[in-house]
Amino acid sequence: MEVYTQELPMRTSRRVELIDITSMVTGVLESSGIRNGILNVFSRHSTSAIFINENESRLLSDIESMLEGAVPVDASYGHNIIDNNADSHLRAVLLGGSQTVPVINGSMDLGTWQSIFFAEFDGPRNRRIRVSVAGKP
């Protein structure tokens, strides 16, 4: 079994931003030479997340609205005494910091409408995403 890893730098431009990174991750998979195994996408930041869903603008807006309703920016959070970004941390907890996708015949085994997203909750910032692929060439 071989393991390949690559860090993807990213600059976000808004406080809350959902960015389709599927093509970037596909590029890493192609560079890895791995044909069958698993691929993991991991955000190295506690105020961001990685999720898989459909890349449809109204759905992405719905996701942002759902997160705002579940974790309002202006609520009273203990952590805000330190950084005033507790909502960003809590939203990241809800979505999670990584996703794992099977790799079959050199391609990610995503469903027809699935894309991989980086979710920024405390931008704009410079971010780093770690993509690791393990398997057989």
Rank of each mutant, 00 (worst) to 15 (best):
G33Q: 11
G111W: 11
S88M: 01
G123K: 10
V131S: 09
H89N: 07
S107D: 09
I104D: 00
I129H: 07
V93W: 05
H79E: 10
R35L: 11
G78W: 11
N126G: 09
L59Q: 06
V3S: 12
G106I: 03
N55K: 13
N40Y: 02
G106Y: 10
F121K: 08
V3Y: 07
L59N: 02
I50H: 05
V25F: 07
I38K: 13
V16T: 13
S132F: 04
E68G: 00
S32I: 01
S43I: 12
N105G: 11
E7G: 02
Q99Y: 01
L8W: 12
S31Y: 02
G69N: 15
S76N: 14
H45E: 06
G123P: 03
I81E: 15
E54I: 05
M10N: 02
I81P: 00
A70Q: 09
V41H: 07
I81S: 14
E56H: 13
E120K: 10
V101E: 05
I116T: 09
Q99D: 05
L18M: 12
F117P: 05
I34L: 10
E2D: 08
Q114W: 11
S88K: 02
D87G: 00
N36K: 13
V25P: 11
E120T: 05
S46D: 13
V93I: 15
N84M: 03
P72D: 10
F42V: 11
R11H: 12
E56G: 01
N40C: 11
E30G: 01
G96A: 08
S132I: 11
V103R: 09
R91S: 04
G33D: 10
N85R: 06
H89S: 06
D122A: 04
V16D: 08
